[in-house]
Design a protein around this nucleic acid. Structure first.
Ligand code: ATP
Length: 672
DNA sequence: CCAACAGCGGTTTTT
DNA sequence: CCGCTGTTGG
């Protein structure tokens, strides 16, 4: 078998047609479990083996860093190596471009990527100038993020917001909620916040997209250059792209038109973050010559699951119908269960998982518990722990988001970007005897244009600074100088990490804590040094390490390959699949969430429920509780309206209802 | 000026 | 339950 035919084997006709589409735009529109992601990866491999594209000419855009990693792995399995294919998120791709060509629109190439934590800090400070408290700062931050993702700058903001509110779209609904009470101040906060970002020479996540679009718009020659580099662009989860991503993509592909978009409008669940499902619906107009392929077979789920999901999603009004037939025979089960309270619900689930694990020879990682909000996870954690069932909460902070990692890296960030006052403040606070007053002195000197090491020594000499602070600031200044020369001389990142951790006394401070948590921190810093060494070995350095850290800082712990039950939000479950899924807390107020109970937001809640249900391959248990206690408050619940919409007969008069999957499905189908 | 602690209120979902 | 705020004692 030739390499090319090997890539096409294991695909149905429609999939083959999409994978082996030649040059020109291609749109794959299909429901869950139809093999969209599979098509995308096989298409990348096919473009290479067919000789149409060289690996380095391909950009495959994914929704998360994790999905990018998996895509690379699958491409490696098909081709033997990734050979320069870039698989990454829009944000990473834009960062890559801006690092290289940002100077052409006046961006200092040493800019730092401002992560969520630093962003909050800057926002709070910007909001304070206008007498807004932190909650209002967070609200303004949401509005600012919306604006940037819609390519609206501070100057146009007021006008834009006035137009948006009252428009009736999901975004306008969310905007109005976010800024209610502080509308008037938001434009000013936006401007002040951008000013601060400029001062610290930083770009936040949204700026990466915003600035990359500005670059391509203002410098068509640069856009052309990148269009020649990435001659083939493929985008997964296209239904969840926002305006900025859409625009950037258009600028990149409009000339060569070798663009593949893959997605499912029914799985658009990020409207609240400015994603616009119109982007995928408009593809045929943007690219009139586009080939459109529909995948109509569901390989993932048993009929009991697909029919229930289909019934649910039909309740959305703004929607184009699709055919999706299960190829799997009847089997498995889909049930709705009710419980008196969340303890009973959690115990049931733990017991069921234990039983299926030992009884059916399933792995722990074949199970997922999906919920609407992170706050619900602890109930299920408790019950699983009690039964000794291994589990991972996928929402928890991952390696790159951990405090000790960010602490050590903050030293390197300051050494690379001398204007990074946020990181400088952070490392000041790590020193014994240093608090707000001292850190403010240092920050003021840097904002006045002094280099960090000099500012530290300068502040140490000021009157009113304690003796302890004085000596630790001097030590920190020395460390920074060494790091700066180390970076100039391109010393390995691992070496510099180790130096930053040791010479500042940070390691010693961590080591003093003998608790389990403390020991873990020490080990994590060790792991950071190993990670840095790996980056060094693959030809990178400090810049690459910081890049990786900035983009991954928000990534959650996915448990790696650990055999454990996965607990996560419905949003995080997108794109995944499990043998058995527990869709818990299917109650009015949680699903749909009480803030999204009407209008376009409700339709998105329904899609969220749809995404959750369609993660199940064989078994789906949708559960709800009559009574739920949260933060010490007990509330009565009504079952989610989505239960009825899925075809379950729900009434509060029975404790537990058990219906065998397929037979039940047939009966309901006949009734409808 | 800084660190430690108690009390309160509340974040939907995340690159 | 967790993070932020304001208080105290060193
Ligand atoms: N032609 C095929 N033959 C057998 N199995 C297939 C085929 N195509 C896809 N599958 C399997 O179906 C499942 C779903 O595939 P994939 O994740 O690519 O679907 P998807 O359309 O991206 O789903 P979703 O939109 O729900 O994320 C996977 O387990 C995949 O291996």
């Amino acid at each position: 078998m030739t390499r090319e035919s090997k890539i096409l084997s294991g695909l149905n006709d429609a999939q083959k047609e999409a994978v082996s589409h030649g040059p020109g735009p291609l749109l794959v529109l299909a429901g869950p479990g139809s093999g969209k992601t599979r098509v995308l990866t096989h298409r990348v491999a096919w473009l290479v083996t067919s000789g149409l594209a060289r690996p380095e000419e391909i950009l495959a855009v994914t929704f998360t860093n994790k999905a990018a990693g998996e895509m690379k792995q699958r491409i490696r399995n098909l081709l033997g190596e990734t050979g320069g294919v870039r698989a990454q998120t829009f944000h990473s791709a834009c960062l890559y471009v801006l690092r290289r060509d940002g100077t052409k629109i006046g961006i200092d190439p040493k800019f730092a990527v401002v992560d969520e934590e630093a962003r909050r800090e800057l926002l709070v400070k910007a909001a304070k100038e206008f007498r807004l408290d932190p909650p209002d700062a967070a609200a303004a931050g949401k509005a600012i993020s919306f604006a940037k993702n819609c390519l609206v700058g501070p100057d146009e903001f007021s006008k834009w917001m006035a137009e948006k509110i009252g428009e009736g779209s999901l975004l306008s609904q969310k905007m109005a909620e976010a800024v209610s009470g502080c509308e008037d101040a938001v434009p000013e906060v936006y401007a002040a916040y951008q000013e601060m970002l400029k001062k610290v020479n930083g770009l936040d996540f949204d700026d990466l997209l915003f600035e990359a679009v500005r670059l391509f718009r203002e410098r068509p020659d640069v856009a052309r250059k990148w269009a020649e580099i990435w001659k083939w662009v493929l985008v997964d989860e296209y239904q969840d792209t926002n305006r900025a991503q859409y625009e950037w993509l258009q600028l990149l592909v409009k000339k060569r038109r070798n663009v593949t978009a893959v997605g499912d409008p029914d799985q658009s669940i990020y409207g609240w973050r400015a994603a616009d499902v119109e982007n995928i619906l408009r593809f045929k107009e943007d690219f009139p010559e586009a080939k459109v392929v529909a995948l109509e077979k569901n390989y993932r789920s048993v009929p009991a699951v697909t029919s229930l999901a289909d019934r649910l999603i039909r309740h959305n009004t703004r929607r184009e119908e699709k055919t999706l037939l299960p190829v799997r025979p009847d089997g498995g089960e889909a049930q709705c269960l009710s419980f008196p309270d969340e303890r009973a619900e959690a115990e049931f689930l733990a017991e069921k998982i234990s039983a299926l694990h030992s009884g059916q020879g399933l792995s722990w990682s074949d199970f997922a518990v999906l919920y609407r909000v992170n706050a619900l996870s602890w109930t299920y954690e408790e019950a699983l722990a009690k039964r000794g069932v291994p589990y991972v909460v996928v929402g928890s902070v991952g390696f790159w988001g951990r405090r000790e990692i960010k602490d050590v890296l903050a030293h390197l960030r300051v050494a690379v970007n001398p204007k990074d006052v946020v990181s400088l403040r952070r490392i000041c606070f790590l020193q014994p005897g240093v608090g707000e007053a001292t850190a403010a002195q240092v920050a003021a000197l840097v904002l006045a244009g002094r280099p960090p090491a000099e500012a530290l020594s300068g502040a140490a000499a000021k009157p009113g600074i304690g003796k302890k602070a004085r000596s630790s600031l001097a030590r920190l200044a020395k460390t920074l100088e060494v790091l700066e020369t180390g970076i100039r001389e391109k010393k390995p990142a691992a070496e510099l990490c180790m130096y930053a951790a040791e010479s500042t006394g940070y390691m010693a401070k961590l080591a003093k804590d003998r608790s389990e948590e403390g020991q873990e921190r020490v080990a994590n810093v060790g792991a950071l040094i190993s990670a840095a060494a790996e980056i060094d070995a693959s030809g990178g350095g400090v810049a690459e390490l910081l890049e990786r850290a900035a983009l991954a800082s928000g990534d959650s712990d996915d448990g790696g390959g650990k055999d454990a039950v996965r607990l996560m939000t419905l949003h995080k479950a997108k794109g995944l699949e499990f043998h058995t899924v527990f869709l818990v807390a299917a109650e009015e107020g949680y699903l749909p969430h009480y803030q999204s109970g009407y209008g376009p937001a409700l339709e998105e809640e329904r899609r969220l429920c749809f995404v959750g249900a369609t993660r199940a391959k064989d078994c789906l248990y949708v559960t709800w509780c009559r009574e739920r206690t949260n933060w010490g408050r007990t509330a009565w619940n009504r079952p989610s309206r989505f239960l009825k919409e899925m075809g379950f007969e729900v009434n509060s008069s029975f404790e537990k209802r058990r219906l065998p999957g397929t037979r039940w499905t047939d009966r309901i189908a006949a009734e409808l």
